[in-house]
Design a protein around this nucleic acid. Structure first.
Lengths: 197, 197
DNA sequence: GTTCGCCTTGGGCGACTGCCCAAATCCAGG
DNA sequence: CCTGGATTTGGGCAGTCGCCCAAGGCGAAC
């Protein structure tokens, strides 16, 4: 049979998963220690044995999930041979995370909670920076102008569209693909980019 | 002197303002009736005299603020004579709502709460649809291709950038302006679009 | 068999929650 | 003056909260 230390680690990971689910379902501030314990199938007191506090548990659980999400996106990205293909793959993620699914909700909840929790904020900032750097590098290799700023805008646009999709289900990947495609091509003359005097 | 009905209306509106502030500061689920009453300077029981429930108060308060935000954005938009100028004005809003200010936070909190509150969701969907329609019409008048889809992407991108800005303060309007400018020009390079044809 | 240390239990603490309500207060109309 | 209706008060209700802790269970080392 498993040693008690091994069982302990398993309980800890079950608590993390339960916490991630509940953050997505109920919202960051609506998750209680007893809820998490019940879903994980353990006694309430165990939460504060394995974690210093409830926010610490929620933070660790959320960061873990978001690392997996970013990992998945980066993996798809690394297979793209052209910028257009990379965009296509990112838009596929838009369908995979429609905005009202657990992963999308968790990311949004964490984004708001990050405004009130410094540790969470720095962790998320690191994740975002890493993803944007990778995307920017890929865009640069494909000759997209201003690649890293474009990457920043693309990442923000994707997040925003996931949010807006809750309010407008018609905001699908096929609907926005041609528009975003314009971001990837050279910006030639014509646009009246009105400068400041 | 004021009649009791007039004082009542004033108390009601103070409760609404206090609720909006607290949603932004503490988060949707962290606002309590007693908090709101204290900030509004009234007795706790008054909350349930003027409002059916706490969610009803939060919803009405948030919708009221968001209506004002959209109103302001539309007003600026109506003064723009070119698509580039319209974009410029929208980016100015990006600086006005840096992501960690009360208005931005309230919008984000409401967006998440809308996923769990049907009334709030339909109210917000209406606001978003109205804004996108106005923006799309303006882009169409300036010859921007696929104007209404472009408007949808622009609106989402703006929201997303406000969110990301809390994680990366360098995501300023000047940094993203040239990238977003590419959204406004024709797919095939060379089509200038200055003023009316 | 005994001891040791990690893991687990379940209840208890004071504080807080949304909502309710009898009683007090207020002012306009009679 | 008094009455009537709207507004306001502050406490009470049953429930939940985060966190804590004495006590017990359990496998490994000796």
């Amino acid at each position: 049979m498993a040693t008690s230390a091994e069982r302990g680690r398993q309980v800890r990971s079950r608590l993390l998963q339960a916490a991630a689910e509940l953050v997505a379902e109920q919202g960051w501030n609506a998750v209680s220690t007893r809820m998490v314990a019940e879903r994980a199938g353990v006694a309430p007191g165990l939460v504060h044995y394995h974690f210093a506090s409830l926010p610490a548990l929620l933070t660790e659980a959320s960061v873990q999930v978001m690392e997996a999400v970013v990992e998945g996106a980066e993996q798809g990205l690394s297979q793209a041979r052209t910028a257009a293909r990379a965009l296509e793959l990112m838009l596929a993620d838009l369908d995979r995370y429609p905005g009202d699914d657990p992963a999308s909700r968790l990311v949004s909840e964490a984004m708001l909670a990050a405004g009130r929790d410094e540790g969470l904020r720095t962790a998320m900032a690191g994740l975002l920076a890493r993803f944007r750097a990778r995307l920017g590098d890929r865009l640069a290799a494909q000759g997209v102008p201003d690649p890293h700023r474009t990457a920043a805008v693309l990442a923000a646009a994707l997040d925003g569209m996931m949010l807006h999709r809750t309010l407008d289900p018609e905001l699908t990947s096929t609907a926005v693909a041609p528009v975003l495609g314009r971001l990837l091509q050279d910006g030639t003359p014509g646009t009246a980019q009105e400068g400041h005097p």
